[in-house]
């Protein structure tokens, strides 16, 4: 079986090439990449870690859709590319630093913990799926908003803000809304591309809608609506 890998190398001409490799059938994409690296071309570059879908290192795009290389079995003719909206460093490795920094910009943490706060099983279950996030950046790469607005906080950071906002241990949930107004919840187009590619079944689109509702309760409003003007008496 053959797959094609789009490779990038800053110091080569041309910088981007497509290479087709013969791979074994039935193995995971990560096993196929590892076999190429250790047997045929040691310069092939990709990230890997746990091999079992939990460390989030090996996300790539196959035929335009984000997958974990360790949790995907290649099909004849597949085209493998690096994730989008991040600078490619080499081959399938992109610079993930700016995307990781969205967590800090969004203040995705428990801001003001309440001591000894009981958490009921229902409260814990409410964000169980959100806390399954492995930070593989698949959703970030799938988000079309980032194509036009690189400053957008993106799906995984906003999901994480919702996780802490919904946590009964958060003593000052209102404060969480401030950090996600600019380039945040209102910039999402609710297209659902993030939800479609998440390997953990997380639905960032829904989390963003919940954050919009909380933002409204906290006195914030959709700036795009404000820009539009008012349907007031002058209309």
């Amino acid at each position: 079986m053959k797959i094609t890998i789009r490779r990038y190398h800053a110091e080569r001409t041309p910088q981007t090439v497509e290479q087709t490799w013969e791979i074994e059938e039935g193995v995971t994409l990560l096993e196929a990449l590892t076999a190429i690296k250790s047997g045929k071309d040691p310069s092939l570059t990709f990230r890997s870690g746990c091999r079992s879908g939990v460390c989030g290192s090996c996300a790539v795009r196959v035929n335009g859709k984000e997958v974990l290389a360790c949790a995907y079995k290649p099909k004849e003719g597949d085209v493998v590319e690096p994730l989008r909206y991040a600078k490619v460093l080499k081959d399938l490795v992109v610079d993930q630093k700016p995307a990781f920094e969205t967590l800090t910009r969004a203040k995705a943490w428990l801001a003001d913990p309440k001591a000894d706060q009981p958490v009921s099983p229902e409260e814990e279950k409410r964000t169980e799926t959100q806390t399954d996030c492995i930070l593989c950046h698949s959703c970030y790469s799938a988000c079309p908003v980032l194509e036009t607005n690189p400053a957008f906080l993106g799906p995984f950071a906003l999901t994480r803000v919702w996780r802490y906002t919904a946590d009964p241990r958060e003593g000052f949930a209102k404060s969480k809304m401030e950090a996600i107004q600019q380039d945040g919840v209102w910039d999402c187009t609710l297209c659902g591309e993030c939800t479609a590619v998440c390997p953990q079944g997380i639905d960032p689109k829904n989390d963003i809608m919940l954050l919009r509702a909380r933002s409204g309760q906290a006195g914030y409003q959709d700036p795009h609506m404000a820009d539009f003007g008012s349907f007031g008496l002058d209309f």
Binding site: W109, D116, P118, E124, T127, D167
Partner: peptide, 18 residues
């Protein structure tokens, strides 16, 4: 465990919230 709880680790829970 109390420290981790205060950071927000989403531990599985008993009915009484512990």
């Amino acid at each position: 465990i109390a420290w981790l709880d205060g950071l927000g680790v989403p531990f599985s829970r008993l009915e009484d919230g512990r």
